[in-house]
Design a protein around this nucleic acid. Sequence first.
DNA 1: CACGTGATTGTTGGG
DNA 2: CCCAACAATCACGTG
Length: 525
Amino acid sequence: MGWGVGVPGLQPIEDQELSGGLIKLAISGIFSLSLLIMQQNRTEAVAGAFSRCWGFCGMRLGFLLLTRPWCIAGVFQQKFDGESAYVGMSDGNPELLATSQTYNSQNESNEDYEIPPITPPNLPEPSLLHLGDHEAGYHSLCHGLTPNGLLPAYSYQAMDLPAIMVSNMLAQDSHLLSGQLPTIQEMVHSEVAAYDSGRPGPLLGRPAMLASHMSALSQSQLISQMGVRSGIAHSSPSPPGSKSATPSPSSSTQEEESESHFKMSGEKRPSADPGRKAKNPKKKKKKDPNEPQKPVSAYALFFRDTQAAIKGQNPSATFGDVSKIVASMWDSLGEEQKQSSPDQGETKNPQANPPAKMLPPKQPMYAMPGLASFLTPSDLQAFRSGASPASLARTLGSKSLLPGLNASPPPPPSFPLSTPLHQQLPLPPHTQGTLLSPPVSMSPAPQPPILPTPMALQVQLAVSPSPPGPQDFPHVSEFPSGSGSRSPGPSNPTSSGDWDSSYPSGECGISTCSLLPRDKSLYLT
DNA sequence: CACGTGATTGTTGGG
DNA sequence: CCCAACAATCACGTG
């Protein structure tokens, strides 16, 4: 797979409320995102990937939650149009990166597993952009992109950084990405952990925390690796991914891990109960009327809030599709978030649907009340504290949600990737929290992110290949078409802005990518 | 008692 | 009222 080179042009947005920052990424196509953050001399963290992300409109929004202000150098995105891979640049000029064949070359068997093999078996060396040296990178990032906007490529190997392959969740579906999964290589500096360790407080970013919470393999792995590498895993006793001290090429290992993880954590295992269908023909016991009603589950509330947005985005989406999406989103939510999510209060509160009430009228398109609610400071806090991005584990249903994304050549990557981000910056969390704010249009010229801190962040975005073909991504193809019409391009009207901020998972705003199956948000410590 | 499995409930919307 | 997919929870059975 040709891993793209990082292309600057991404605008990070910092959420003022956050100690760190919340960055939004707009990406088109299916991609995996990896971030390389460099702080001072060391790489601070590597971000996870957006798994299974494909934009409904061809555009996706990702979120990066940073514990502290960062400077993002840039993001690059690749799109695969079946035949070719494109790198989307902020400038809007697509660059042919590689042919699809490259991708195809790697067929993995990670079918059900979302966990990507640590090392890409077949992957040719990913071409990652990175700074030649940290400093350079730092400066370049902070101050600006290189003239051409490209960062010098380096070989991660040289850096002695462990490379983590993050599979995109897309892979979950066996067919989906099986062969083409975009993999993300994340570079983590060995010292990464150290940084966190210094940080007191429940920062989300703490590796340990993350590790514990992260169900997502990519993240977990990343973290684990970080911890291992650094040898500073102090905070958390056992990172889930601890086993993967060394990235092993074997995907199986990871898979196992993932599975075990599920079992251990009790997280939804791939529900194997198809049998459930056999469900008793008769629902017995209807429950007596007298029985006090149980509070609505958080998931139910979440579903209720989210489905509207999804539906709005994709009217044609069936219940099943919506359900899958919501599930993936739910998955991506951290435990805390789930609990703290609107539902929580609601559940406790007799009044259901607080979110909706709290928020201005739901906005069908983008508004994700539930999500929005997540963004509350407390939520953010929670999020930081460990909310994990979701578990990669689940595989989406075979059906694809997204219609035409893949099918048609990716909209010109040209649309600004980061566009949506800028809007949020200044807004207070609350404001942002409400998804209500008008959808951000993806404008080519995003505002420069506010980067309070000098830290440079190098972001590499590995784009997973967009579904080459319908066959490859059944769900996508299946998706009701029309999405394409919605917002083919960058122009996606979606209100990504607010949305994202609130939605941790990195799902694209519903508006933009509503249908994306789970993608992950990136968490930077 | 711990664990696993199945059933139930909840979400929305259409038939 | 049932069904769709999914998650969460509870009940029950088994070791």
